[in-house]
């Protein structure tokens, strides 16, 4: 077996960390190691957490993790923050809210930049979930960048998705548009010590009431105050209940299949783009086609067909 993969399977933190780096950098070594990782995955419950910026997601994750730790579960956390499209740099600050977990051997936290990917995730996140899963984590939590209107990709990877809202954003449900409200398995109204919490709960519940996408399960709406731990136990119970619900329905296998579909698309996209734009083989051809488009000698669609034709033949 691949050396780094076998160390990851033993749960060695440094090998876990190094393999994540290799995956993030699209290293061919990562692809080799993942061959041995993949058969050893599937056990971890993957929880996705998304929601409004400043909603307290990181603090909430810290508290959820402490609750799972009390129950003896090992937890992996992937905290994603945006990469600047201008400098390519990123300031990853989610750990500030998770300091109490820093010395716990049963917790592994990794901060990641989006590195150009839209949708609130980063393209290596599929690998990282598998790596943490294979390293023996019972729970893998994925924290997306704060959500605006289109950051819904987290459902592609999570078994259970939490959407975190806060009271007092006025008509907050309007600000996070349709897609975001549809992806929740559980709604969390955090910062529940704030005024207007009842109104926000009522607004969300009224949305849940008219939602008839699944008649077997009504989406729960919970309130928490992550700062003092209020409502966390109930939230974790609700997450576990959702997992049980998935296990007893066909939905679970379906969700996992869709996850692998999304991952496959991501890998193909990456490889194809790499092949066309980075490898010297096609570089000249691509440049000359771009020039031809510019000179109106060819249209962009024909040019794209020509490039794809060369690869697929």
């Amino acid at each position: 077996m691949n050396d780094i993969a076998s160390k990851v399977l033993k749960g060695e933190p440094r090998s876990v960390a190094r393999l994540i780096t290799l995956a993030e950098n699209n290293s061919p070594d990562a692809a080799i190691a993942m061959k041995d990782i993949h058969p050893n995955t599937g056990e971890a419950h993957v929880i996705g957490i998304t929601g409004v910026m400043g909603g307290g997601k990181s603090t909430l994750i810290s508290e959820i993790t402490r609750e799972y730790r009390k129950q003896g579960k090992k937890v992996g956390i992937i905290a994603i923050d945006p990469t600047s499209p201008f400098s390519g740099g990123a300031l990853l600050g989610d750990r500030v809210r998770m300091m109490e977990l820093a010395m716990d051997e049963g917790v592994f936290i990794r901060s990641m930049g989006t590195r150009g990917m839209l949708g609130g995730l980063t393209s290596a996140v599929y690998d990282v979930v598998e790596i943490l899963d294979a390293s023996g984590k019972d729970i893998v939590i994925v924290e997306t960048v704060g959500v605006g209107q289109a950051e819904v990709d987290v459902i592609k990877i999570a078994d259970s998705t939490l959407v975190v809202l806060v009271p007092g954003l006025g008509d907050s449900i309007q600000t996070i548009k349709a897609g975001v409200m549809e992806i929740a398995d559980i709604y969390v109204i955090n910062k529940a010590d704030r005024p207007d919490v009842n109104q926000t709960v009522a607004e969300v519940k009224s949305l849940v009431d008219i939602d008839c996408s699944n008649k077997d399960r009504k989406k729960p709406v919970l309130t928490t105050n992550a700062r003092n731990g209020e409502g966390i136990k109930e939230l974790v119970n609700e997450i576990k209940k959702h997992k049980k619900y998935l296990d007893n329905s066909k939905e679970f296998d379906n969700k996992r299949m869709r996850r692998y579909e999304a991952e496959l698309i991501e890998i193909i996209k990456k490889r194809l783009m790499n092949l066309i734009f980075d490898e010297s083989k096609f570089k000249e051809k691509v440049e000359s086609l771009i020039y031809k488009i510019f000179k109106k000698e060819v249209d962009p669609y024909t040019a794209a067909d020509e490039i794809l034709g060369k690869i697929l033949k």
Binding site: P13, A17, I20, S84, G89, L92, M99, A102, S111
Partner: peptide, 30 residues
């Protein structure tokens, strides 16, 4: 901020860190 603007990924952990915490974070974040 300056390092981020120079294209680096900066993991900021804030105040009151012990040497052990710093090393543990450095390992996990590689």
């Amino acid at each position: 901020r300056a390092l981020r603007n120079a294209g680096m990924e900066v993991i900021y952990t804030g105040l009151h860190q012990t040497a052990d915490m710093i090393i543990e974070t450095a390992i996990q974040e590689d």
